Amino acid sequence: MSLSDEEIAAMSPAERRELTLRLVQARGLVPPSRTLERIRKWRIGLTLLCAVALIPWTVYLANTLPNHYEARHWVATWVGFDIALVVMLTATAIAGWRRLQVVFPTAFASGVLLVCDAWFDVMTSQPGADLMQAVISALLFELPLALVLIAGPLRLMRYVAIRHGMVEPGTRMWRVPIPMPELWPDRESPRR
């Protein structure tokens, strides 16, 4: 059986999603649902465990850390962080230039690193000109670039999902599911 471009264009997004899923399954590219579901549950459990464990740790740190601390390896810490930021930004630029999907995690990670950089610059600055420079840098450069690097890939992922018929146009990014509907037989396409 062969479908023409016109027949495919005439399909509804739901019909295209079903066809795409069937083609992927026919090629054996999808691991068994049981395996995927087990991995998903294990990762969710691990993530929740870490989040819960961080609560008492954060309270402990808030009550025990000194207000002033002389740090060892101060230069290596900041230079190492900036090297990691340069590597991630370069990887993002290369992936974006070559139109590779790895741009999603590299851009997102670069944005998060910029938010962390802004936070630590502001929080560790001395009052006065040093603090003012950190705040200006954060507000004018680091945080706006972080917003672009985080929001851009999210919008692009949504566009790819719509373009490939995985979701309806207008679906919000936080409603775009992982494209494996066989894992959620009781769910219809996501609501807007």
Rank of each mutant, 00 (worst) to 15 (best):
D5I: 06
H68T: 13
R99N: 10
L3F: 12
V103T: 13
L19I: 04
L61S: 08
V176L: 04
P31K: 05
S12H: 00
W174V: 14
P169C: 06
M157K: 06
V102E: 07
V167H: 00
T171E: 09
D5F: 10
P169H: 05
N63P: 03
A134H: 00
V115Q: 08
F120C: 09
L19W: 05
L3C: 03
D186R: 10
P31H: 03
R175S: 14
A138P: 01
A91P: 00
A26P: 03
G170P: 07
T106R: 02
V75H: 04
L114E: 04
L19M: 12
R27W: 01
E188Y: 02
P153Q: 03
L46F: 13
P177K: 07
R43I: 03
V122I: 15
E182W: 01
C50V: 15
D117Q: 13
T47K: 10
G111F: 03
P169Q: 07
P181F: 00
I162F: 05
R22L: 10
I55A: 10
V75P: 00
W57Y: 11
L143S: 03
V59E: 05
T90Q: 03
C50E: 14
L154F: 08
F108D: 01
S137I: 07
P32R: 14
A53P: 04
P31T: 03
A26G: 13
L65T: 08
S189E: 15
M123N: 11
L3M: 08
A107E: 04
W97H: 11
L46K: 12
N67V: 03
G111M: 03
W174L: 14
S137A: 12
W184G: 00
M157W: 12
F81G: 05
P179R: 05
P169E: 11
R158D: 06
Q25G: 01
L139H: 13
G28R: 09
G28H: 09
W174P: 02
E142Y: 05
N67M: 09
L3H: 14
L23Q: 11
R192K: 13
P190G: 02
P56Y: 00
L100W: 12
F141S: 13
M173D: 11
M123W: 02
L89R: 06
D186I: 00
L183M: 14
T90S: 15
R187P: 02
H68Y: 11
Y60Q: 09
A51F: 11
T58W: 10
E182P: 00
L54W: 12
R27G: 13
P181W: 07
L145I: 15
L156Q: 09
T90V: 13
E70F: 09
A129Y: 07
L21G: 08
N67Q: 15
V102H: 02
R22M: 06
L154Q: 08
A9R: 11
W174T: 10
S189G: 14
P127W: 08
H73F: 15
L54H: 10
P13Y: 08
I136Y: 11
E6N: 06
R98G: 04
V148E: 04
